[in-house]
């Protein structure tokens, strides 16, 4: 009975998710370049090629770095923001709406906005520092950090709202009881609020790191992966290999590696989420 009820959903999933996934996996084992009319089975040689492909390894490193730093910063900034929103008495609703503005903007629009501000010749930064120090997008390390900055700027409000929902799910009496029990505000936060916010924090981590690992639009609009390929993430490399270079097999291999990265991240956070939250740390 249970299996029968799940069957339609399972079939739909297989059709829309598993199907393309298997097709991609199959494609990644072939050498297929339609414009040249080449198409034959090559086994794992696409993957072997990637292992020695400096551009691919760079993209992997960029993606991992982007994900870790952007998500880390977003959580670090979102937590105090959520706490402030939670404790703001009057005008909380208006404040919440205002905070969401960056997130409401389509990513492409937000990225374009910042691209204009950071534009090497005419952008705001370039005018403030005409000696070239303001030309962030032309300098590899800085350009990736500019992309991280835009992502943090845009997504921190969303993370804050996720955490705010988590904070609001904690019964108010708990903090009141802890205060009567003699806890300082800091102790209430450490011993009550933070442990009880753990599921919301992990959920935010899960959502955001999955999203960040597939980053495409921010980087595409801001730097197009440049200068050179120094800010190119995996999904942008896969897109170019597939659609620009027309190398379907190799593109599929990159996509699949990206997918496996996402799955690994997802499983890691989900297993942390499933664990029982640890008891309060000993005093």
């Amino acid at each position: 009975m249970g299996a029968a009820l799940v069957a339609p959903a399972g079939a739909a999933l297989a059709l829309v998710a598993l199907g393309p996934l298997l097709a991609t996996a199959w494609l990644s084992l072939r050498h297929r370049v339609p414009v040249l009319g080449e198409d034959h089975f090559v086994g794992l040689s696409n993957y072997r090629a990637l292992a020695h492909d400096a551009r691919f390894l760079g993209a992997l490193a960029n993606t991992a770095y982007f994900t870790a730093v952007a998500v880390g910063l977003e959580l670090l900034l979102a937590l105090p923001l959520a706490l402030a929103l939670h404790h703001a008495g009057r005008g909380r609703g208006a404040l919440r709406a205002a905070v969401l503005v960056p997130w409401i903007l389509p990513t492409v629009v937000a990225a374009k906005l910042w691209a204009l501000l950071l534009q090497p010749d005419l952008g705001l930064l370039a005018r403030l520092w005409p000696d070239g120090a303001g030309a962030v997008l032309t300098r590899p390390r800085l350009a990736l950090h500019a992309a991280i900055f835009v992502d943090v700027w845009k997504t921190t409000p969303f993370v804050a709202l996720l955490l705010l929902a988590g904070l609001q799910a904690i019964p108010e009496d708990l903090a009141r009881a802890a205060r009567v029990d003699g806890a300082s505000a800091l102790r209430v936060f450490r011993s009550i609020t933070l442990p009880l916010l753990r599921p919301a924090l992990l959920l935010a981590l899960l959502f955001r790191s999955l999203d960040a690992f597939r980053v495409f639009d921010v980087v595409f609009v801001l730097t197009e992966g440049g200068p050179g390929h120094t800010t190119e993430p995996l999904s942008l490399y896969a897109y170019r290999t597939l659609l620009r270079a027309g190398s379907f097999g190799l593109g599929a291999a990159i996509s699949l590696v990206t997918f496996l990265g996402v799955v690994a991240i997802g499983l890691a956070w989900l297993s942390a989420l499933g664990e029982r939250s640890p008891g309060e740390a000993p005093p």
């Binding site: 708990l174 009881a177 802890a178 205060r179 011993s191 009880l196 939250s277």
Partner: peptide, 17 residues
């Protein structure tokens, strides 16, 4: 914390974790 009173809440307010 400085008042030295204890309180039992209607909801009990036990720390669930």
């Amino acid at each position: 914390r400085e008042r030295d009173v204890a309180m039992v809440f209607q909801s009990y307010a036990l720390y669930p974790h």
